[in-house]
Nucleic acid binder design. Structure first.
Length: 117
DNA sequence: ACATTGACTCGCG
DNA sequence: GCGCGAGCCAATG
């Protein structure tokens, strides 16, 4: 029987699992790398429904501006901060400097703004 | 088939 | 910095 899990979903899980320790990646970046252009929201959905037993490095996934996706003050926000710092990532006011800790830093821009001026 | 909802992103004010 | 609107796409009701 064929897998009940769609291919893009699996590709996204693999990509997240591949983010190096001490690095972070934004949702759109992960989607692009997984072969799902404009799939940022899908990445969020996949993470939310992912089986905790997979031990995904979910803390390494941030918004495009380097901020943690969860509302500051929330339980999840604090937990993500804690996990990131535990692996050496500097978090200031719920934010990470992508220029320093970003995984793919630039690929993003090429894929999202096509008209390209 | 239509409307709403999100761990999203971008541009503008 | 913050809020809004628009575009985006799969899941849900």
């Amino acid at each position: 029987m064929k897998s009940v899990v769609p291919a893009p979903h699996r590709a996204i899980l693999r990509t997240i699992a591949a983010i190096p320790r001490g690095c972070v990646a934004c949702y759109g970046e992960i989607a692009a790398r997984a072969g799902v252009p404009r799939g940022a929201r899908l990445v969020g959905r996949v993470l939310r429904e992912a089986d905790p037993a997979l031990d995904l490095p979910w803390q390494r996934v941030l918004r495009a501006d380097g901020r943690i996706a969860f509302p500051s003050g929330s339980r999840a926000h604090r937990e993500q901060c804690r996990r990131l710092r535990a692996e050496g990532v500097v978090v200031v006011h719920g934010r990470v400097d992508l220029a320093r800790f970003g995984w793919q830093r630039n690929l993003d821009r090429e894929l999202w703004s096509l008209p390209h001026a």
